[in-house]
Each structure stands twice: as C-alpha cells, then as structure tokens.
C-alpha cells in the first residue's frame, strides 16, 4: 500500500540525504556514530532471514540498507574520522541494548534464534535514534541536511502506522503485529519533539535550533 511504499522510500531517502551531507560537506559532524552502529546492529539482527527472503522488493531494500549502513560506518570511522567528535556522542547505549535485549527475551513470538533476534532488532530500532537526538540536544543546533536526515528517518516509521491500520482492515486475517506496532508507536513518539521543531523552524526556512 501507499503508506508502506512511502515509508520505505522515506527510509531510503534518509540514507541518501546522510551520504550526501557527509560527502558534500566532507564532514560527519553532528551525526552520532553510536546511532549509526545501532542501526547496523538493527539491520544485521533483523535481516538474518535475507537468504530466504521471497519478495524481490524486500530483498533489494534489505541489501540496500545493510550495504549503505556499512558504507556510512566506513565513512565515519575511516575516511572522515577527524570530523567525528566522540566527546559529543556520549549517550550510554548499553541502556538501549539492555532494553531491547530484555524485551526480546521476555516476549518474542517464538523462542527461535530468528524470532528473538527479530524482536531485538524491532525494539532496538525504536530507540536507536536516542544517541543522535542526545547529541543534537548537546550541540543545540543542526545543519539543515542533518535535520532533513532525521526527519526522513522518523517519517519512515510514522508512515508504517497508517500502513498497519490499512492492512488491518484490508487483509482478511486482521492480524496485528503487536511487537512492531508497539515499538513503531514508541519510535514515532520519540521523534515528536524533533518533528515539532523541524516543522516550526526548518520547514519555514530557518536553522534547526533548539529553544
């Protein structure tokens, strides 16, 4: 459906915006390396089923997400390392890993390796933006491209919410993926404050600056 496709393309667009920002400005300043590593972990643990992916659409996106994230991490850790300031990237990710690990072990759909890792990846993704938002809060402002990146990334999961509602009514099984929906709503709520400033500042041509 349209929400799902717009969501996935918003996700893909966010990655292109980030790569464009790093290469155009020859800098990864303002980007949290910790959040990027968490996303890598999200993709690896979620796409363990990559070889068995039957849909070409999903297969292509999975390959794109894994490979582009690897490239982003390479750019941040090697090519543009001097522009990456670890002193600003101080969020304690062990809390996020603990949170996702605990929920994945307590409430997976099934106790299989694939299902536990899948649930872990869903919960981890819901909070993986926190080091990035924390860094933004410390610097108090962001380059326009960094703000566009975060907005596109946040829009992706927000668009999955109408997708789930649409699917609930349009598919005969009326299934609700409780883990994905709960985590997806949490993820979108974490962005809400950012979305508000993005809407009131960046979309009106102003700089992204915290009040």
């Amino acid at each position: 459906n349209i929400f799902r496709v717009l969501g996935d393309f918003s996700h893909l667009a966010s990655i292109f915006i980030l790569l464009h920002k790093i290469q155009q400005l020859k800098s990864c300043s303002g980007i949290s390396f910790k959040s990027q590593v968490l996303y890598m972990l999200v993709y690896i643990t979620r796409y363990l089923d990559l070889p068995w992916t039957s849909s070409p659409y999903n297969f292509i996106f999975k390959v794109l997400f894994i490979s582009s994230e690897l490239y982003i991490i390479y750019l941040m850790a090697r090519a543009y390392k001097p522009t990456n300031d670890p002193n600003l990237d101080t969020f304690h990710v062990e809390f996020l890993l603990g949170f996702a690990g605990l929920l994945a072990l307590l409430f997976p759909y099934k106790y299989t390796i694939l299902e536990v890792f899948w649930a872990f990846s869903i919960w981890l993704e819901s909070v993986a933006i926190l080091p990035q938002l924390f860094m933004l809060q410390r610097t108090g402002e962001a380059e326009a491209m960094t703000a566009h990146y975060i907005a596109a990334l946040g829009m992706y999961r927000a668009l999955y919410i109408p997708n789930w509602i649409y699917r609930y009514f349009s598919e005969p099984t009326h299934k609700v993926d409780t883990i994905a929906v709960t985590a997806g709503i949490l993820q979108t709520i974490l962005y809400s404050d950012f979305f508000w400033i993005y809407y009131t500042k960046v979309m009106r041509g102003e700089k992204f600056k915290l009040p």
Partner: peptide, 10 residues
Amino acid sequence: TGSEHGHDEL
C-alpha cells in the same frame, strides 16, 4: 522465513 508470523515488512 521459517517464522509462522511471516515478517513481510522491513
């Protein structure tokens, strides 16, 4: 995918 839930989303 070996999962009866069938994770058909990304």
